[in-house]
Amino acid sequence: MSLSKDQVQHIAMLARLRIGDDETADVVDKLSRIVEFVDQLQAAPTEGVLPMAHPLNQVQRLRADGVSERVERDLYQQNASAVEDGYYLVPKVIE
């Protein structure tokens, strides 16, 4: 199945991913080939088969509801490009 340029731009917006004009043709072409390739799954008979989400069918572990981590905000924020007074800076979102 071939994807259209508009479809790819829509998916890119859902993924919050800017695709440059110079990339678009290549992305549309290769993504179409990938979708075409995985389309062969449609022919597999899977009636009554349970979907498998996890290789070991584990159950989520629970732990006691206690404090287990320390706050090391200054250390963590060293990896951020823009911080001020312990806050992360982003472009203005409220007018």
Binding site: L3, V8, I11, A12, M13, L14, A15, R16, L17, R18, I19, G20, E23, D26, V27, K30, L31, I34, V35, V38
Partner: peptide
């Protein structure tokens, strides 16, 4: 969008897009 568009290479973008699709 711009941070991700600049930060990721072509194959990573393809996989993110395939997965989102």
């Amino acid at each position: 969008c711009n941070s991700r568009g600049e930060g990721f290479g072509a194959e990573v973008k393809r996989r993110i897009l395939t997965g989102t699709y």
